[in-house]
Amino acid sequence: MATQSKSSPSETKIAGFGWLSVTLLFGGVLLAYYIVPVGSLFLSVPPTEVLGRMNSPIIVDAAKTSVLSASISTLIATVFGLPLAYWLARADGAAQTAVLGIVVLPLVLPPVVGGIVLLTVFGSSSPLGEAAIAAGFPLTRSLAGVILAQTFVASPFLVVTAKVAFERVAQTLEYASRSLGKSRWHTARRVTIPLAVPGIVAGVTLTFARAIGEFGATMMLAYYPRTMPVQIWVSFIELGLENAYPVAILLVGIAGVTLLVINIIASNPWE
């Protein structure tokens, strides 16, 4: 019967409610899995105690090292990554696919393996590492080592995110600018980059957040000077879980700021 094949309004409502219930139930479980541990971390230690421990010279040094190294590695990733991201956005064919594959390699490699890979090139027994030590600029167990590790692991975030940002700038706009007598550089400065800025900011923010949280490759390449993630590990191993909380809370705070930047500053006003 025709009437049997159609849903009545009440059936539709029930079906709609049922569908929403399923999504809420399954999604809610996952959301809780994200939120509960983070909330638990903040509730584990009184805020006054956290603030008190943050004055510890060890933690302050770790924070300084992390912020400095992450800033430098983000800068390096931006300077070298933006041109590559632009090329990837405008090129196509097998070469583009191959280059993109190379760019995302550090993303899919376990960070510890990334550290081993880097040690084969920059380690103290490698030709480059030996030459750097001879020149008084060691590439392991140094700030340079931290930066190398962070750049390797975090820079793909910049390239991939900026690539998407450049792709969203219609190439016709660049042709229009150049047909108006403007050079490629002028076009990049006045048209392409301003329109891609929100995406680039998102990429820079993600890169900084990934760099400041980098642990695996950094452990392999530069245990000293200690970054915040390394300090968390050391505090956990040597002094127990509670001593790892303050730095962990600091890193969660940085992650929160990252989310804020991506959602507010990096939103595209022209879309």
């Binding site: 016709t172 042709y175 229009a176 600018s177 150049r178 108006l180 022209w270």
Partner: peptide, 27 residues
Amino acid sequence: LENRDVGMVFQEGALFPHMTARENIAY
């Protein structure tokens, strides 16, 4: 393109969305 002295109006107009109409022409 920039050295050809050839003006082109694109199908979709291709105005720069981050500039006003005046800024587009002034460009």
